[in-house]
Design a protein around this nucleic acid. Structure first.
Length: 399
RNA sequence: GGGUCGGUGGUCGAGUGGUUAAUGGCACCGGACUGUAAAUUCGGCUCGCGAAAGCGAUACGCAGGUUCAAAUCCUGCCCGGCCCA
């Protein structure tokens, strides 16, 4: 714990780079008491994989760990079972218990890539939510009005557009608010899209005779498309468990205007360095591609280590930029297939034989560097041969 | 509960009895180009069999029906929006 800084300075340090803090002075006051604060982040186990967008808030949580606070990672197993409002304006189906269990298994491990899990308490909100009686829930619901709910942008838009809003979706923010009450927390973190959900915890805590939590939100990282927020279901994400080459390549694919954003939120460059980068880009002093490579390399280093990052960079430069055939690639036994299209399907480079035949017709398929032209071509190589589909899918086929 | 409109391919959205897997946008895949997996541009985008021309199967909420022929008409059911209660 830092003792040389004033509470105000500590509060500013802890919330550096955050979107919204409700409120900074409360945080400073709370820090002034000298006791470790109880800080939590809620995650819904709705998908099995965390991505680098999640890492932004996990990193903030880690900052609180390092500052000596009681940090809780709350898995929303109960809320996930009920179903919740999703930012995609669609009703998200409730998950089965098995799915949730499976997802939760991988969560802690993946969060551990950013968070020091040995200093984090893992909790599940079924612990208290499943014990509430119907009359408890009635009392909780009476504390919030429909008008307040409709203030939330997502609900407002959906109501105006005539998109259905199920009643249970109104209950979801209340359930999340109750999490804060049940754990009597001092600080709650979330993405900026969660601000509403975080804020309504405060009156609930006051009502329960607690101090209202300080709500801190972090910027949402845009996905690879540069348009929507990063999300696995949109397929525009970089997973924390993605292999090095994928991480590197995906980072290279972001639109140029996202470079500073990724430098800051994905590669965690300090604010000054990002400012410098922005100035350099604007003035045309630095090459966007080189900067992307730096960001990509830093990112891969974070999750796979320096060597893997270097290898990934090398792979990208050879295979993608210079279109060379990579030195290493998976091997696939020919397994009695006689047509090239069948081998493509066996290598999982196409979903069906028709799709494979189309790829050949498009000139996308090469064997040992030579384009295959006939969609019905037979596999004629007698020794190991490199099958390439598109510019980055390779497999060594062993007869 | 009553009225009314609607449920189309990964998604949005045309299409209202007849060469046809179904216009188009987006997404996705591929070619060219490029510092780039960006932008642009061109092409592809249900599955199986066949060397190929082709043949066959499945598809417009679900189940039946009418018809030589239905995503398109009829009946029932399921689901949803809006208005009224």
């Amino acid at each position: 714990m830092t003792t040389t800084r004033t509470p105000r300075e500590r509060a500013a340090f802890l919330t550096d780079g955050c979107d919204h803090v409700e409120t900074l002075s409360e945080l400073a006051q709370r820090l002034e008491t000298g006791r470790p604060l109880r800080v939590y982040l809620g995650l819904d186990p709705t998908s099995a994989d965390l991505h680098i967008g999640h890492a932004v808030v996990l990193r903030l949580l880690q900052r609180f760990v390092e500052d000596g606070h009681d940090v809780i990672l709350l898995i929303g197993d109960f809320t996930a079972r009920i179903g919740d409002p999703s930012g995609r304006n669609a009703l998200r189906p409730p998950l089965s218990t098995e799915q949730i269990e499976a997802n939760m298994q991988t969560y802690a491990a993946q969060a551990g890539k950013v968070l020091d899990m040995s200093r984090v308490t893992l909790r599940y909100n079924s612990e208290w939510l499943s014990k509430l009686t119907f009359s408890d829930i009635y009392k909780l619901l009476s504390q919030t009005t429909v008008a307040q709910m409709l203030e939330r942008n997502d609900f407002k838009q959906r109501y105006e557009n005539g998109t259905p809003i199920a009643l249970h979706e109104f209950v979801y923010p209340v359930a999340v608010a109750y999490d804060s009450v049940a754990m009597n927390v001092d600080v709650e973190l979330g993405g900026s899209d969660q601000l509403f959900n975080l804020l309504i915890s405060r009156p609930y805590q006051v009502h329960a005779g607690q101090l209202p939590e300080i709500c801190i939100t972090v910027p949402l990282l845009e996905g690879l498309d540069g348009e929507k927020k990063m999300s696995k279901s949109l397929g525009n994400h970089i997973g924390l468990t993605d292999p090095p080459n994928d991480m590197f390549g995906k980072t290279m694919s972001i639109p140029d205007r996202l470079i500073p954003r990724y430098a800051r939120l994905a590669a965690w460059w300090p604010a000054e360095r990002v400012a410098e980068l922005e100035a350099g880009l604007a003035a045309g002093r630095v090459s966007p591609m080189d900067e992307k490579k730096r960001i990509a390399e830093d990112l891969v280093t974070m999750y796979h280590g320096r060597d893997a990052a270097r290898t990934a960079r090398d792979w990208f430069e050879r295979t993608i930029q210079r279109r060379e055939i990579p030195a290493e690639m998976p091997e696939l036994p020919l397994g009695g297939h006689s047509k090239v299209a069948d081998v493509i399907v066996a290598a999982k480079f196409a979903e069906s034989k028709r799709a494979a035949a189309r790829l050949i017709g498009e000139g996308a398929v090469k064997i040992d560097g030579a384009v295959v032209e006939d969609p019905a071509a037979r596999w004629t190589a007698t020794g190991p041969a490199v099958l390439q589909v598109g510019s980055r899918k390779f497999v060594r086929v062993i007869p």
